[in-house]
C-alpha cells in the first residue's frame, strides 16, 4: 500500500473514525438500555464513569489495578516460560510430544473455575491461588503455540541452510528462532487476554483485594454501577497491555509481518 503522506493520514483518520463509530454506537446502545431498564439493573455509561471516578478518588482503583496486574503478569510470565519451553521440547521430540499433548488437551478442557476451587483447596485463599490459576489456564495456550512452531519448522529452509553451510548457532538464530517466535508471539497475546480475565475471576473467590475482589464487593452491595466501573477498568487494562506492550513489541521484533511498506 503506497500513497502520499496526506492520503495515508486521511486513511488512518478514517480507520480511527470507523473504530470510534463502533465505540460510540456501543455506548449509545448502553445508554438506551439503561433508559429502558432503569439505572438499577443497567446503570448508564455516565453512572459507570462516575463510579469509576469515585473508586479512583477513594484510592481503591489504583491498589486493585496493581494487585490484579502483578497476579496476572506473574502467572502469565510463569506460564509463558514453562509453556514455551515444554512446547519446544514437545515439538522437537515426537515421543515427548505424544506424551504431553493429551495432558495439554486435558488441561485446556478444565474450566478455570475448577482450577480456582483446586487452588483454594491447595494453597488457601490469597494471591498464590490466583497466580496458580492464571498459570494453569494459560500454560496450555503457550504450550500449543510453541509446539506448533517447533513442529512446522520448514525442512526446505533447513536444506538451504545446509547448502550455504550455516554454522549451528547461525542456523538457530537466523532460521529456527524467527520461525518459532512467529508462532509463540500470537499465542502469548492470546494467553495475556486469558490471564487478565482469569486473574479477575480468581480474585472474585480467592482474594480480598484486586479488581475481582472489588467486583465481589459490588455484588454484595448490589452496586451495579461499581461493577460496571470495574469491568471498564479491566477492559482498559487489557487493551493497554495488548496495544501498548505486546503489539508494539511484535511490530519491532517482526517487521516482516507487516503487509505493505510502512513509512520511510
Amino acid at each position: 500500500m503506497k500513497g502520499s503522506l496526506p492520503s495515508r493520514g486521511v486513511a488512518t483518520l478514517l480507520g480511527w473514525g470507523g473504530s470510534l463509530t463502533g465505540i460510540l454506537l456501543f455506548v449509545a446502545l448502553w445508554e438506551w438500555g439503561s433508559l429502558a431498564y432503569g439505572s438499577f439493573l443497567l446503570p448508564g455509561p455516565r453512572d459507570a464513569l462516575a463510579a469509576l471516578a469515585g473508586l479512583w478518588q477513594a484510592g481503591e482503583a489504583a491498589g486493585a489495578i496493581w494487585a490484579t496486574t502483578w497476579r496476572a503478569m506473574l502467572g502469565f510470565a510463569l506460564a509463558g516460560l514453562a509453556g514455551t519451553a515444554l512446547g519446544l521440547l514437545a515439538g522437537m521430540s515426537r515421543t515427548l510430544g505424544r506424551a504431553l499433548e493429551p495432558v495439554s488437551t486435558v488441561l485446556l478442557g478444565i474450566p478455570p473455575i475448577a482450577w480456582i476451587v483446586l487452588a483454594i483447596l491447595w494453597f488457601g485463599s490469597g494471591s498464590m491461588a490466583a497466580v496458580y490459576t492464571v498459570m494453569a489456564t494459560t500454560l496450555p495456550v503457550t504450550f500449543a503455540g510453541a509446539q506448533m512452531g517447533a513442529l512446522t519448522l520448514d525442512r526446505r529452509l533447513q536444506e538451504m541452510a545446509e547448502v550455504f553451510r550455516l554454522p549451528p548457532l547461525m542456523r538457530f538464530m537466523d532460521i529456527t528462532l524467527p520461525h518459532i517466535v512467529s508462532y509463540v508471539f500470537p499465542a502469548l497475546v492470546t494467553a495475556l487476554g486469558v490471564a487478565w480475565k482469569v486473574a479477575v475471576m480468581a480474585e472474585l473467590f480467592a482474594t480480598e483485594d484486586g479488581i475481582g475482589a472489588g467486583l465481589a464487593m459490588a455484588r454484595v452491595n448490589l452496586d451495579t454501577a461499581a461493577a460496571m466501573a470495574w469491568i471498564v477498568l479491566v477492559v482498559a487494562l487489557l487493551l493497554a497491555a495488548e496495544h501498548g506492550l505486546l503489539r508494539p513489541l511484535q511490530r519491532r521484533m517482526e517487521p516482516w509481518r507487516q503487509a505493505g511498506r510502512g513509512g520511510h
Binding site: 526446505r156 553451510r165 537466523d174 524467527p178 520461525h179 516482516w256
Partner: peptide, 25 residues
C-alpha cells in the same frame, strides 16, 4: 551452491541480508 525452485529466502530477512546469508555463514 544451489538455487531452488521456490527461492527459499528467509521471510524475516530483508533483501540485502538474504543475499548476504552465505557470506555471513
Amino acid at each position: 551452491t544451489m538455487v531452488f525452485q521456490e527461492g527459499r529466502l528467509l521471510p524475516w530477512r530483508r533483501l540485502l541480508d538474504n543475499i548476504a546469508l552465505g557470506l555471513k555463514a
